[in-house]
């Protein structure tokens, strides 16, 4: 792969102390790269650490261990205010709950212009408002919406306002933390298509966190599968669906419903038992998980030595 790496995550760990000496290992040593201009989908069940990964990368949580390298610079542990602001401009986030992610006491114009105000991007008030109007139009809303308050909008409209807010600082990289899971299906398509369009027009890179597998397949170039704080499989989107190798991935994919009665009648749900192929022990008892191995170009799976040999014997 000759493409430029935009973001490198190296052995990232995020442990939360929950009192009395107990620790929740929400993210326990994951590594992946994101190339410029691609969409990396991150899937996994509830509580597997997807959102925590996103929030740790952007610096909302201080990582317990590991490095996040953005454009060749380590972004964590930065103390300098100017450097931090520069990083804040380059990396943005779209949040899950469109009802909680907009301040109910601010007008839409003020919400969108927040980044512009913080980074001093507009020289005059007029310039500021023009930028807000442009952004509103970019996300399919109109000028008239600028003076209104969030409670007057529907979920989809609010999510688009959230997108406009993230775009206001002209970022290169956007972490989308389940941006569509709170929306109904027709609105999901609207928002995902908007995100795709924006990616094309503005040369954006996304980390797309979701648990809707069909939507992830639609938008992502590559997909990472997370299970209990670990990355168990990482592959180009099409390959992952054609040839899932990790037992957990197989189990996940077997759960996708298709609008085809024939298929639905014969669909068999594969149950994942956590001690089968490449099983990951619960992080508190057994944190040694098999490393990711490249089994075909760009396709990484977490396999133990024996499993790897068995796999090779099967195909070679």
């Amino acid at each position: 792969m000759e493409r430029e790496k935009l973001l490198e995550v190296k052995d990232l760990k995020q442990h939360f102390k929950i009192g009395r000496g107990r620790v929740v290992k929400a993210v326990d040593g994951i590594s992946f790269d994101i190339y410029k201009g691609e969409v990396l989908g991150l899937v996994g069940e509830s509580g597997c650490g997807k959102s925590t990964t996103g929030r740790t990368i952007i610096g909302l949580y201080d990582a317990t261990d590991g490095d996040v390298i953005f454009k060749g610079e380590n972004v964590h542990g930065k103390k300098n205010k100017a450097e931090k602001l520069k990083f804040n401009r380059a990396m943005q986030m779209i949040f899950q709950d469109p009802y909680a992610s907009l301040n109910p006491r601010m007008t839409v114009a003020d919400i969108i212009a927040e980044g512009i105000d913080i980074h001093g991007l507009a020289k005059t008030k007029e310039d500021r408002m023009n930028r807000v109007y442009d952004l509103l139009e970019t996300v399919g809303l109109t000028k008239e919406h600028a003076s209104r308050y969030p409670h007057e909008f529907s979920g989809g409209q609010r999510q688009r306002i959230g997108i406009a807010r993230a775009l206001a600082v002209e970022p290169d990289f956007i972490i989308a933390d389940e941006p569509i899971s709170a929306l109904d299906v027709s609105i999901q398509a609207q928002v995902v298509n908007l995100m795709k369009e924006l990616q094309r027009d503005r040369d954006l890179t996304y980390l797309f966190i979701a648990h809707d597998l069909s939507m992830v397949k639609y938008i992502s170039d590559r997909i990472g599968v997370m299970y209990q704080g670990h990355l168990v499989e990482l592959a180009p989107a099409a390959r992952l669906y054609e040839n899932p190798l990790h037992a957990y991935t197989k189990s996940l994919l077997s759960a996708i419903p298709l609008p085809d009665p024939e298929h639905e009648r014969t669909r068999k749900r594969i149950v994942y038992e956590s001690k089968s192929l490449g099983a990951v022990g619960r992080s508190d008892e057994d944190s040694s998980i098999p490393p990711l191995r490249e089994v075909e170009p760009g396709h990484y799976v977490s396999l133990t030595d024996e499993e790897y040999e068995a796999y090779k014997a099967q195909f070679v």
């Binding site: 931090k84 602001l85 943005q92 949040f95 899950q96 709950d97 992610s101 980074h119």
Partner: peptide, 21 residues
Amino acid sequence: QEFVLAARTLGASSTRLIFKH
């Protein structure tokens, strides 16, 4: 709340967070 997190990812200072949000 997510709107406070959003302001933090935009680089809002403590003063701004407290008095605006």
